[in-house]
Amino acid sequence: MSTETIEKTEVKEEVSQPAEAMLSKRRRKILSDPLNEDNPITVQVLGICSALAITIKMEPTIVMSIAVVFVIVFSNLIISLIRNLVPGRVRIIVQLAVIATLVTLVSEILKAYYFDMYKVLGAFVGLIITNCIVMGRLEAFAMANKPYDSILDGLGSGFGYAWIILVVAFFRELFGSGSILNFKLAEIGLDFQTNGLMVDSIGAFMVLGILIWIQRTKTGYVEH
C-alpha cells in the first residue's frame, strides 16, 4: 500500500516537473522565429497571394492582419486540442473545416459591425481559407504540439505575416496613393507624382522583393 502511494506521488512529480516557464527560451523562439528568420512570407514564401491583393492601402491591411492572426491562433488552438482525436486520413479536411468555420465567423462579424470594411475586404476575407500560412502551421505545428505552444506559434506566424504586409502596404500607399492611413500627404505640402505601378500588384512584388533581399542579406539565409 505505502509503496504504491509513494510511486504515485513520484509519477505526479514527474508530470508536473516539465512545466516550463510561460515564456521559456524555447517558447520565445517559437514566438519570434516566424517574425524574422523563419518568416512565413519572406522565407517560407507562403501567403503571397493575399500579400499582393490587399496591400494597396494600410487600413484594410490592418483589418486583414487582425483577421489572419485571429484565424491562425484559434485554428492552431482548436486543432492542437483535438489533435489526438483527428483521424490521420481525414486530417487535411478537418483542418480545412476548422479554418473555413473561423473565416466565415470573421466575415459575418465584420459584416455586422464593420460594414464599410466588409465592403472593401469582402472577397479577400474569404480567401484567408486558402492562405497557405494557416494550413501550413496546422499541419506542421499544431498537429504535433500542445495547445499553449500552438497559440504561441500562431501568434508568431500571424504577426510575422502581419508586419510584412503592413510594411508592403505602407510603401504602396505612400508611393501609389500619396497618403498614409488615408491621410493625404499633399495636405501638408508633400505633393509628389504618385506611381500607378504601386497600385498594381506589380508594386507589391517589387516591395516584397526588396524586403526579401534586405532580410536575406542580414540573416544570411540561402535557399538550398
Binding site: 483527428v86 478537418v94 468555420t101 466565415t104 465567423l105 459575418e108 459584416k111 455586422a112
Partner: peptide, 24 residues
C-alpha cells in the same frame, strides 16, 4: 468523427449567422 465535427462547426456557424442577422 466527421459527422460530429460537421454538426459542431455547422451549429456554430448557424448560431452566428442567425444571431448576427438583425445587426447585419
Amino acid at each position: 468523427f466527421s459527422v460530429v465535427l460537421t454538426i459542431i462547426l455547422g451549429g456554430m456557424l448557424s448560431i452566428a449567422s442567425v444571431g448576427l442577422k438583425p445587426l447585419q
